[in-house]
Design a protein around this nucleic acid. Sequence first.
RNA 1: GAGGACGUGGUGGAACUGGUAGACACAUCAGACUUAAAAUCUGAAGACUUCGGUCGUGCGGGUUCGAUUCCCGCCGUCCUCACCA
Length: 848
Amino acid sequence: MERYNFLESEARWQKAWADAGSFAVETDPSRPKYYVLEMFPYPSGKLHVGHVRNYTMGDVVTRFKRARGFNVLHPMGWDAFGLPAENAAIASGGHPATWTYDNIATMGQQLKSIGLAYDWRREIATCHPEYYRHEQKMFLDFLQAGLAYRKESWVNWDPVEHTVLANEQVIEGRGWRSGALVEKRLLSQWFLKITDFAEDLLHGIETLDRWPDRVRVMQANWIGRSEGARVFFDLVGDGFDGEQLEVFTTRPDTLFGAAFCAISANHPIARKLAEQDAEIAAFNADCNRIGTSEAAIETAEKLGLRTRIEIKHPLKPGETLPLYIANFVLMEYGTGAIFGCPAHDQRDLDFANKYGLPVIPVVRAADGPVPEITTEAFTTTDGVLVNSEFLDGLSVAQAKTAIIDRLDTAGIGRRTIQYRLRDWGVSRQRYWGCPIPVIHCAVCGIVPVPAKDLPVKLPDDVSFDQPGNPLDRHPTWKHVDCPSCGAKARRETDTFDTFFESSWYFARFCSPRSEQAFERRDVDYWLPVDQYIGGIEHAILHLLYSRFFVRALRHCGYLDVAEPFAGLFTQGMVCHQTYQNAQGQWLYPEDVVTTDDGRTLDRAGEPVTVGRLEKMSKSRKNVVGLEAICETYGADTARLFLLSDSPPERDLEWTSSGIEGIWRYVNRLFRLVVDHLGQAAPIGTPAAGASESRRLLHKTIAALTDDLENFRFNRGVARLRELSNHLEDKISALEPASIREALDTIVVLLGPMMPHLAEELWCLLGHDDLLVDQSWPVAQDDLLRDDTVTYAIQVNGKLRGTIELARDIAEEDARTVALSQAAVERALEGRPVRKVIVVPNRLINVVG
RNA sequence: GAGGACGUGGUGGAACUGGUAGACACAUCAGACUUAAAAUCUGAAGACUUCGGUCGUGCGGGUUCGAUUCCCGCCGUCCUCACCA
């Protein structure tokens, strides 16, 4: 039996596409464009089959849109800065650059081996100075525009590694690598003013109608807009007479129920008090130690320390409230200070009960009495105000307006909109990142590196034999003369957060070799990205930072688009079973065998525990190598498997029986064409008639087109199988012209998913041009509708039979036919017919 | 605590806008070919059934001629954010 020789074929067609420059594109405003982009990878080593699902999806979209006449930009590059390279350098003594470029070479080769339609001329790596020089310039422009600034900020400090840790690198209060207790430290760092765009970023979400709802919801929650008021309280006592405390609240209507105020341990007042008071200093230190892990928050007791400062109630002359320092008040949100109204906030109530503070209800249900409050706060907001002087009788909403007006008039408060979103801290105390282009001068302060001196390149001669940042202890690199006054000065040794690079790479792909960050003409044409594809794990940070960057770049005159990604698709993960031996060590799937009697053993014959389905990951060893699959089954088989069965947004289970099934199908397709080549009419012979096969062919064209437009690859595969199942059965009976049409068409339809096989078959069918340049078939309308339709016959909504009727039959006739059915009569059991519902071309329901 | 998603045969899933539930596969079983196996091909199959049918889309209600689909209330699984004032 003839088998498809994928090894030979795949290499040949990949070369043919490369030689023809099939996927090389240029800016061409005379043609409609389409920009397809998969989130570019971090070059971490080697790809496994789990990595390539989203690239395959992007490739299908690319080839499909090309066939539909679009000028398609589909580039690939490398998010090449980041910690793993430094970790590898520390572990093995190499250089991060060597490690990174080696991985890029390996992974690039792997991507090429599965035939992805990239314009490889546009490949970029963000660790290359030709890339990062432009973001240094952007930073300087941001600085000039007031979008970048420096401030002190609390960071997670690992005292063993001498470095700052990201929140996710802190596990149960300890450094993920060193295991040392993490300290909170105040460091001076660079920030980007993403909060300037909070409102615009929030509004912009509404325009992103081709984004998944859940990502839009996540972004909106992250921005976290809340309306409320800022209120200024006068302080008395402990030397603070005449000073004010600024508080943010979303419930200004409950001000008459206020029982206390509380400030964060990091609030300036708390820090000032700590200077003279050991007890307060100790309490503040405790607060900073607790950390922000979930477990810590769940279990941490709400603690407060009463200060000697009292707060004057702004609307109750003569009345004062105590001021506490409390461990649950965050300096990072609002003003770092709150007022507590125990009657209407559960946490405030718990706090009041603990410290014996009064509980004054100020809201009652619209139709209820003033609530008795003991342990449950009354948090309903559709109530009416009581105990609140001029607010009494107003609704909560009315009271909010009324009290803000009053506070505003008195100059002690104003309406405010507060965002949860905080400015983006971009400083990292790391080597393998883009140097922040500023110089610290004792005389001039912070001096930007002049544009002519860019890029500030990373030095190559660094060592990782000591903890900390190699840039900081490099013998010469950081010592420079001040560009402003010429005095001895010091370079900034921090580098950018690597999210900085990924916030604008999609624009660089438009003009990858430009001396500018990108050319205006190119980004005007290509942006926004029409279809972005990536993991849900980037739902917030990467996507939000990119949206911010586009706004900041527009502000600085770089470009003129509103949003970076018009369409977003978040694909599911590829999962595989996990295996562990008796010692609890993870095993690779290829080292596990299943015996005939169903036992699972390792190579040595020892029993293996089969674990749950998990996302493919190196750490659990439940990975299937890309090379192994490509050598055994070929790239097309792997690609089709990744597109079959599971909807693309859901997780997919990789199984050996699944890949076997696809492999069988690939060979059936091959035989379908090869076995009937001889029966086909010459190329270009028009097919005619309305045979069942032609109808199915054209219905498949229409349905598959729709499926591919809407990311329903699994359904598209099912349709192709329906068509090929049918043709296997019926093709020999067709006229030569219909055979030609059927074979040519199905091969073109296969193209986006299985490009090598399709190209091979196209060639075998006698064409001397490339399939990749063929246009997508258009369904013939008159073949999409059948002359007869199968009606469902129901009695009281239950199916009693089906019947073939002419399309668009008169309702009266349909009715008559249905009522004459024996099954209908039987099901009616003698009851009279009360009503007959006819849904045209679908069903007839007899009600009796 | 706040917000969101999902729940269909043994398994993955399909079902347009409320209109024949289970397309297409995987696994299974039976048969053909074979000395045998593999490969390949053909066929069967939601469950129960007295073979007339009955029941079936997590559970309980509701709307409707008709509900996997819409509404209400539960149960379960998963995700995101989380001391957010």
